[in-house]
Design a protein around this nucleic acid. Structure first.
Lengths: 137, 137
DNA sequence: GCATTTCCTATTAAATTGGTAGGATTAGTA
DNA sequence: TACTAATCCTACCAATTTAATAGGAAATGC
């Protein structure tokens, strides 16, 4: 299940990408426009900034802005920041690999093989979708 | 993240599919062979039985058996029983559809479009994988 | 120097997950 | 018929995660 955090994060990024103003977009605006609890949204945007996807400016006329063109922001990157690993099990994760404690032999594990296929097909979608695709109507 | 329930369930089904005996497979055997807490496994197999994937026999020499040939048991069916909806958001779920409370217009929602693609690509994998594929080594 | 905004830490309530406990029910067998 | 071995069923519990809230520190612009 997609977390609210991710859902809110994607909506916020789309909102920012659609902004025509030259000034940064403020959390309050996004929260109001997308019906997201403001304080919760703050923490999400902060995470996106720490990951290098967003930039920010403090104080009056401050806010958040994209660090790259929407067409260069891949869903792989965004989803990993917001939702974490794309794989459904750590033992098939490319970026967050961890061995299962229970599985003696990964190559022989039936779940393993299936989850690799799911990972690859999901990855294919995220790799071919950018923020621009989301924000174009 | 894949739940332990699903992981255990898949391993148990594979175990049963690989059994050569003509007698049903007992929970205790599976629990021991796959390192799964027995009581937890009981509840999982019960769910699979109620969904019609497994059959059971009580008493001495009782246990669980497959209701269909492994090659006819699709992952779509199994995953829906164990993990629930395949879609990451209820508003794109084919079998468990629910409207989002926050989204005024589904067609315009940027998250919606992305999640439909993820659902379809995952579905494609599950639709083309059977229990036989998991249990073949 | 004051208002406005992001930034940071801590706390909390609710839901979910993973597992346990205990016994009822059913089927085979001596 | 009594006993044993298995599934079946209900309830409960602990740990974790999620979704949020609270309160203020730090920076910026006027």
């Amino acid at each position: 299940m997609l977390s609210k955090k991710t859902k809110y994060g994607l909506k916020a990024l789309t909102f920012i990408a659609r902004s025509t103003s030259s000034e940064p977009v403020q959390v309050g605006e996004i929260a109001k426009g997308e019906q997201i609890p403001q304080k919760f949204l703050e923490s999400i945007l902060l995470a996106l900034r720490k990951a290098g996807i967003l930039g920010s400016k403090k104080g009056k006329h401050g806010g958040y802005y994209l660090r790259k063109d929407p067409s260069e922001i891949l869903m792989t990157e965004v989803m990993r920041v917001l939702e974490g690993p794309i794989a459904m099990v750590p033992c098939v994760s490319l970026n967050f690999y961890e061995k299962c404690d229970d599985c003696p032999d990964e190559a022989a594990c039936s779940v393993h093989k299936l989850m690799i296929q799911v990972r690859d097909s999901t990855l294919e979608v995220f790799k071919n979708t950018t923020l621009k695709d989301l924000s174009d109507r």
